[in-house]
């Protein structure tokens, strides 16, 4: 991207304008996410920077909205903070319950999506796979079909088969929504996979199962894990299907946020949003580490 030495003054001017434009676009991308972080520490119930916050006065900042995340929905939020209080938090606080639901649903949905998705990706990446393109298009379609259509279809279907208002129903739906991501990431990993390694293992006497677990699996693991992370995030962030098919007691974090935004929007939403951003940063870090590991592994393999 360096400016060539023969660039005319006009080109130079354009080059720097271009860099400024790019910087502004990056700002547009990242600023909304960064701006909610300081606002979540607001001492006032406003969604904007107060005078005190701008003066960096410590009084303008507080953890009250994070505290509210714990106390909202508790039986006795004002009791002394001993073991009983924490037990109350664990059992009754709305956000804690939502987090537990989200984690349970996310875990099982990810498990189903990853196991089935990885198996299917292994099949899809074989050259002899029949109807490869059509089947791939069907398996990716949950990502493409508008979520409202999926949710509507599931609403009728689950009412008919008796899965409405059940954890199983939500888990199956979220697994379906996560599958495209697993397929995409794992097939992308398998494109660079050297099939002669499998043949080498077979010629050395390993059974297909042993070959899979000792040769294929370790090499495609980075792809599988990033697919699983995608599937988990998809489930963890999904609100529309939950709104349509879940019972009130199956409150998840996104649904609680949705209600919060629509009804009594308070900076509590910003506190939970900040926590979610922190989780995204952690996930992104894991992904980056995986990508590096994958590159290192590929550097070793001759393919």
């Amino acid at each position: 991207m360096a400016l060539p030495i023969y660039a005319s003054p006009l080109e130079r001017a354009w080059h720097y304008t271009y860099l400024v434009i790019c910087a502004l676009i990056f700002l547009f991308l990242i600023a909304p996410i960064l701006i909610i972080i300081p606002l979540s520490f607001n001492a006032e119930a406003y969604f904007t920077f107060s005078e005190k916050m701008l003066r960096l006065d410590p009084e303008g900042y507080s953890l009250r909205w994070y505290d509210r995340l714990l106390t909202f929905g508790m039986v006795a939020p004002d009791a002394p903070r001993d073991a009983a209080w924490w037990s109350d938090v664990w059992h009754n606080a709305s956000w804690v319950r939502a987090a537990k639901n989200s984690l349970i649903i996310g875990f099982f949905a990810t498990l189903i999506a990853t196991v089935l998705g990885t198996l299917a990706a292994l099949g899809l990446s074989r050259p002899e796979m029949p109807f490869r393109r059509t089947i791939m298009a069907i398996l990716i379609s949950p990502m493409i079909v508008p979520i409202i259509i999926t949710a509507t279809g599931l609403f009728f279907f689950y009412s008919m088969v008796g899965l409405a208002h059940s954890y199983v129903g939500i888990i199956l739906a979220h697994a379906t929504l996560g599958i495209p991501f697993v397929i995409i990431t794992v097939t992308a990993t398998l494109v660079g996979f050297d099939q002669s390694l499998n043949r080498a293992a077979a010629s050395l006497g390993a059974s297909p199962t042993r070959t899979f677990f000792q040769v294929t699996m370790p090499l495609i693991m980075p792809g599988v894990i990033s697919g699983a992370l995608f599937a988990f995030v998809t489930s963890f962030d999904e609100v529309v299907v939950v709104l349509f098919v879940a019972a009130p007691e199956q409150q998840t974090i996104p649904r609680q946020m949705w209600n919060g935004i629509r009804e009594q929007i308070s900076p509590t939403i910003l506190a939970i949003a900040t926590i979610l951003v922190a989780i995204s940063v952690a996930l992104l870090t894991v992904l980056e580490l995986l990508r590096r590991r994958s590159e290192r592994l590929r550097g070793l393999s001759p393919g």
């Binding site: 909304p32 996410i33 701006i35 935004i261 940063v281």
Partner: peptide, 17 residues
């Protein structure tokens, strides 16, 4: 990638703010 990985509701909330 960070916006890509951040919850949709978080990004929508951010724009509301």
């Amino acid at each position: 990638l960070l916006p890509f990985w951040t919850s949709l509701l978080v990004r929508t909330t951010a724009w509301m703010v």
